[in-house]
Structure formats: C-alpha cells, structure tokens
C-alpha cells in the first residue's frame, strides 16, 4: 500500500513538472510564432496587441488542453504494462 502511494505521488510530481515545463515551452513557441507572423505581414496594428490577441486565442483553443496527455499517456502505459506483466 505504501509502495503504491509512493509510486503514484512520485509519478504525479514528475509528470506535473513535465506538464509545467511543456506549458511554458509551447506558450513560448506560440508567442515566437505570433511575433514572426506580425513581422512578416507588416502593418496589421500594434505588435503587442497582435501577440496578446494570438495568445488569448491559443489559450481558448484545443491545443493547450492536449498537454494533459502528459498525464493520460503514462496512465495508459501503466495499465498496459500492468496487464502484460501479470495477465499475459
């Protein structure tokens, strides 16, 4: 029981770290893409407004939610490994 708790707490902490880092990373990539878009298109208003609007759109979109896969995929892998080891 203690081993089970330790495994899940450590796993959750590790995955949360990865999730946090990925969130920051993808946001940074998005911001860079928006800045480049603004520079390429030219004369579409203020740079900061364009980038801010783009980041808001990104936040509302499906893509940041996909990062929750960081928790879901290891869970699936855990189930598969558990099944393969003990029931196959």
């Amino acid at each position: 029981m203690l081993g089970f708790l330790k495994f899940f707490i450590l796993g959750f902490l590790g995955l949360s770290l990865l999730y946090g880092l990925l969130t920051i990373y993808v946001r940074s990539l998005t911001k860079e893409r928006l800045e480049n878009e603004w520079a390429e298109m030219g004369s579409i208003g203020a740079r900061d407004d364009y980038v801010e609007q783009g980041l808001q759109d990104y936040k509302k979109s499906m893509r940041p939610k996909l990062l929750l896969g960081v928790y879901i995929f290891p869970m699936i892998i855990f189930c598969v490994v558990f099944y393969m080891t003990n029931y196959m």
Partner: peptide
C-alpha cells in the same frame, strides 16, 4: 511498485 516499473505481482 518499485523500480524497474514492471509492476510484477
């Protein structure tokens, strides 16, 4: 539940 994570029971 230990290492390596084979979850062998």
């Amino acid at each position: 539940w230990g290492w390596p994570p084979y979850f062998k029971f």
